[in-house]
Simulated scan of single mutants.
Amino acid sequence: MSGTFDHVMIRVEDLEESLDWYTTHLNYEEKGRWEADTFTNVYIGPEELHDEGAMLELTYNHGDNSYELGNAWGHIAVRVPEDELQSSYDQLMEEGVEDYRDPESCGNRYAFVKDPDGHEIEIVKRDQGAKWSIDHTMIRVEDVDEAIGFWTRKFEYEHTGRWESDTFANYFMKPEGASEHAMAIELTYNYDGRTYDLGDAWGHLAVRADDLHDYWETLETRETEQYRTPADCDDLYAFTKDPEGHEIEVLERDWSDESLFPA
């Protein structure tokens, strides 16, 4: 199905440390790897990954690199069963994971930890999907009307939930007809008019297309920013940006391919 999220890319300073962290604590497994001269990309995710589920892409640039998290990207959220929030959190604490916000401080509705590079990971209670599968990715936006319009018009997303408080609002969106297993995007809007820094520790969101060129033509018709066209990327994938500058990759996905990386 075109438009569903395929993966979230983050940059890591120590690939082996990050792989060990995700495979040990979230029971992720390596799904695919691409070795280039200057960087390595690794797809990881739960063993039981739904065909509309999203993966995490770890990007390691060879050499001694450090990254700034910024604050325009918020977190990824992973699922645990409704009755396992506290026990899952306790297990992570016993394993030495860095605590950020415990369940009690979050009204026993969710909790937060951090990975070795400081990326925030929310733990949310869900009865669908494999344990630790990615539920949503949160980004912060300065103009929520523009952001909602972008995802609605360009990618045919719809609201799947919202939370509005006195100081901020969260809007969850997915493609029309997407499975409950599919990852959502959470748009966070703070009412105080603050601005955000993208940093470089977060890379991009990626959406799937049944046909890259047909889908890109549709995005062109809808006046989506042409950041890197298919022709710029050897007709393997393409990139656009949302109004806030978050990068969005577009690629085809065939789970039966020998490699998950376009070639």
Rank of each mutant, 00 (worst) to 15 (best):
M1N: 11
T4Y: 14
F5S: 03
F5A: 02
D6Y: 14
H7N: 00
V12R: 01
E13A: 14
E13V: 09
L15C: 08
L19I: 13
D20M: 09
T23I: 07
H25W: 07
N27H: 13
N27S: 15
Y28M: 08
Y28S: 01
K31C: 11
R33T: 13
A36M: 11
N41A: 05
Y43F: 15
G45M: 02
G45C: 00
G45R: 11
E47L: 10
L49E: 12
L49I: 09
L49M: 13
L49C: 05
D51P: 14
E52H: 12
M55G: 01
T59A: 09
Y60N: 05
H62P: 02
N65Y: 12
S66G: 12
L69C: 02
L69W: 00
N71Q: 06
N71M: 08
A72D: 09
A72E: 14
I76N: 10
A77R: 05
V78C: 10
V78N: 04
R79G: 02
E82G: 08
Q86L: 13
S87G: 07
D90M: 09
V97R: 00
R101M: 14
R101F: 05
P103M: 04
S105E: 14
S105M: 13
G107K: 00
R109P: 02
V113L: 12
K114P: 03
P116L: 01
P116S: 01
P116R: 01
I121W: 03
I123A: 00
I123R: 06
V124F: 04
D127A: 05
D127V: 07
K131I: 07
D135S: 15
T137Q: 10
T137L: 11
M138L: 04
V141R: 05
E142S: 14
D143W: 04
D143C: 03
D143T: 07
V144I: 15
D145V: 11
G149E: 13
F150E: 11
W151Q: 08
W151D: 02
W151Y: 15
K154Q: 13
F155D: 01
E156M: 06
Y157P: 02
T160W: 08
G161C: 02
R162M: 14
E164V: 14
F168N: 11
A169W: 00
Y171I: 00
Y171Q: 01
M173A: 03
K174G: 12
H181T: 08
M183T: 11
M183Y: 07
A184Q: 15
D200E: 03
L205S: 06
L205Q: 10
A209I: 13
A209Q: 07
D214L: 08
E220Y: 04
T221I: 10
R222G: 06
E223K: 15
E223C: 10
E225P: 01
Y227D: 09
Y227F: 14
R228N: 05
D234N: 12
Y237S: 09
Y237Q: 06
T240G: 08
T240V: 09
K241E: 15
D242C: 04
D242Y: 04
P243D: 04
P243W: 11
P243N: 10
E244L: 07
G245N: 02
H246Y: 09
I248L: 09
E252I: 01
R253H: 12
D254M: 09
D254I: 08
E258H: 08
E258T: 14
L260T: 01
F261E: 05
